[in-house]
Design a protein around this nucleic acid. Structure first.
Lengths: 127, 127
DNA sequence: TCTATAGTTCGTAACTTATGAACTAAAGAA
DNA sequence: TTCTTTAGTTCATAAGTTACGAACTATAGA
């Protein structure tokens, strides 16, 4: 088992962060981690936004987040405990992560609203 | 020649924006466009951050920016005129683009500083 | 020592991206 | 009109990246 790679803060790039967060599963995971007050284990994310993720894929997603510098991971027994490195990144790129998370929230809210509207329309047609 | 695709503002996604800007050439182009007060033609970017970009590649990069919703392009005669759609995006995802551009500036400044340091060290060794 | 759990690695198929070569479309010159 | 130049696009393909099942490792607990 190869060791976990956590880039030092000065090696973290904007491009790397944007690429890592340009995947819907990874932003969703990152948003959860950034909002959490304690560590989360990988298997908490086998279901993400109503989609189930194969565990090999999930493992790669965590690796991507880790190697982009977004999360810190630590093996504890059989589990992997993850936290967001948001404080550090906020120091280096102030405002970047909050802006991305807020945009992600806007988008989620818009989507939820669109789905509700669609369901209401379907009910109306059905009745 | 297929028509230019400009997604309507409500179809623009955060993931799409982040993906488009996760390429160093594209952020550099976008940063220029966003800072400009008038339109820029594609061929202005055949040189970007000291790297020359083949024009077929450049064409694809502009397509990526356009289809992510980041830029508006318009053919005028033989040229393609591009502007950033920053106002619209600011409405939908407030603060997102400013934060990315500011992070990009931080990173550019850090890199410039690192290069200067290296050059100074090289001069010292050489003398 | 056996079993279960949590995650990783590997192989491969599917997708994406970069680029040279050949192309189109407009503008201006002859 | 026809030729030439300029600016950008499209296509084919090679290179790189990603997703995921199957097989694996490492730890914990029975």
């Amino acid at each position: 088992m190869r060791p976990l790679i956590h880039p030092p803060i000065e090696d973290i790039t904007v491009e790397g962060i944007l690429h890592a967060l340009s995947d819907p599963v990874r932003v969703a995971i990152y948003a959860e981690l950034a909002g959490a007050t304690c560590t989360s284990i990988c298997s908490n994310f086998l279901q993400v936004s109503d989609r189930s993720i194969p565990k090999s894929t999930l493992s790669q997603h965590f690796r991507a987040l880790r190697e982009a510098g977004l999360v810190h991971s630590e093996r504890r027994g059989v589990e992997m405990h993850n936290t967001s490195r948001c404080m550090e990144i906020e120091q280096r790129f102030p405002g970047l992560l909050p802006a991305i998370l807020s945009a992600h929230n806007v988008q989620s809210a818009d989507r939820a609203r669109a789905i509700k509207r669609k369901q209401a329309a379907a009910r109306k047609l059905g009745s």
